[in-house]
C-alpha cells in the first residue's frame, strides 16, 4: 500500500506559497531599499543591505515553495486517506475514514483568489487530532469531504 502513486496537489498551491513568501520578504526589501535611498552606508556599500532580502527572497519565493510542492502528495483509497509532506522533516500520515470525527474545508483569502482549499480531517486521537491536506481545488475538496462524510455515515448506520 505504500507503493501506490501519490496524487499531486494543484499547481496553484505553489503559487499561493510564492505569494505568501513574497509578502514575508516585502518588509525586509522595503527596509533595505530605504537604507539604500537614504545612503545609510558609505559609497561602495550603499546598496549592500539589499543582498540580505534578495537572498531571503530567492529562498522563500523560488526554492521553498517548489520543494514543498514537490514533497507533498496524497492518496485516496476506498477506506483511507494518505497525506505525505515535508521537505526536511518527512511525515507520512494515514487516516482511515472510519476514524474521522468531523471534516472541515477551509480557505484563506489568498487561497480563495486561486480557487484552492484545505481539507481538514479531525480524529479523536491525541496525536494527529487534525490532519490537514492543503492545495486542493475547492470543488475537489468539497467533493472529497462529501465522499468521506458519506463513508462515515454509511458505516455508522
Amino acid at each position: 500500500m505504500d507503493t501506490e502513486p501519490l496524487s499531486k496537489l494543484d499547481p496553484a498551491y505553489a503559487t499561493v506559497m510564492r505569494i505568501e513568501g513574497t509578502l514575508t520578504v516585502l518588509p525586509f526589501l522595503i527596509a533595505a531599499l530605504v537604507m539604500g535611498v537614504a545612503g545609510a552606508l558609505p559609497e561602495p556599500w550603499t546598496w549592500a543591505p539589499m543582498i540580505v532580502p534578495v537572498l531571503i527572497a530567492l529562498v522563500m519565493v523560488l526554492l521553498i515553495p517548489m520543494k514543498r510542492y514537490r514533497s507533498r502528495g496524497y492518496h485516496v483509497s476506498t477506506d483511507r486517506l494518505r497525506v505525505v509532506k515535508g521537505v526536511m522533516f518527512h511525515a507520512d500520515t494515514v487516516v482511515p475514514f472510519s476514524r474521522v470525527q468531523h471534516l472541515d474545508v477551509e480557505q484563506g483569502p489568498l487561497e480563495r483568489a486561486f480557487g484552492i482549499a484545505r481539507l481538514i480531517l479531525h480524529t479523536a486521537g491525541t496525536h494527529n487530532a487534525s490532519v490537514t491536506l492543503p492545495g486542493l481545488r475547492h470543488a475537489d475538496a468539497v467533493a472529497m469531504r462529501e465522499e468521506i462524510r458519506q463513508h462515515v455515515k454509511r458505516e455508522s448506520l
Binding site: 526536511m88 518527512h90 487516516v95
Partner: peptide
Amino acid sequence: LHSVEISQNPLG
C-alpha cells in the same frame, strides 16, 4: 487507534 503516521527527520 485513530491514525498512523510515519515521520522522518533528515538524519533518519
